[in-house]
Amino acid sequence: MKARWLKQWDLQLMVVPALLFVLLFSYVPMWGIVLSFQQYNLFKGVFHSPWVGLDNFKLFFNAPEFWQLMRNTVAISLLKFVTAFPAPIVLALLLNEIRSMAFKRFVQTVTYLPHFMSWVIVATFVTSLLSVDNGSLNILLQKLHAIGDPVNWLSIPEYFWAIIVSVGVWKEIGFAAIVYLAAIAGVDPALYESASMDGASRLRQMFAITIPCISPVIVIFLILAIGSILNAGFEDLLLLGKNPVLGSVANVIDTYVYRMGLKEAQRYSYATAAGLFQAVVNVILLVVANRTARRFGHSLW
């Protein structure tokens, strides 16, 4: 082993520095979760900070905002899941029905675009469109006489989830459809030919051929989506939920970790514990989802 290693020293030299890099930037932070079991002190460091067992977790579970955080996290991610997951599939199916290649390509090109915009840009769009100061939504609704005075949409908790979810779909629908379009393109054309000979309508073909044929791809993405069910989003909530009025609906575990650990307080250990709780739940969900899928003949690994 050692001799083989030495013999190929130049090959090893290509990978070992990168592996050390991964060790430093990925594994050291993983090991850093031990500080959720400590009362971490920046000056004492991980090695000299006192151990407190599960105190940080107890504190988090008993925090007055815990249930609100859980509700928001689960509600937002579920809402995102039921909209953002099927939306690109529907888009791909609709695009597949288009015969004009130019129109199809135009729609695709346009709908990919938002994926390449940062959340800062998207949040600026949304803030501008929904603002009282020349916001297009207010202009439209006033023209339709649906509202009297302009509404400050981003300061009303009842609308926040709907806004976040719609923006998420808007940003990713086109890009997420790429994979499904590729899967549809891979369906054997002979299946369609024989179906239309049997007199099946386009709609019938969609349900009887296209959807079953792309279901393996759908299932893989379904498992991945379930594995991140507690990831309600971070940048979008941070940027669009800035108004303190929205706190009761916009605070999720991820943003809470950021606020408690870095932005508003330096409760490093406490915030790490909250983040670890979320990570553990995610891993459990991923494993359960994959087990269930395996029973039906699909699996991620």
Partner: peptide, 25 residues
């Protein structure tokens, strides 16, 4: 022919599923 290739790969793949989170980073 890279010695340890399999272990290196597992070492890398793990990081796709787990990370230490914001604060340790």
């Amino acid at each position: 022919e890279l010695a340890g290739r399999k272990y290196y790969m597992i070492f890398c793949i793990v990081t796709l599923y787990f990370n230490g989170g914001l604060i340790p980073y």
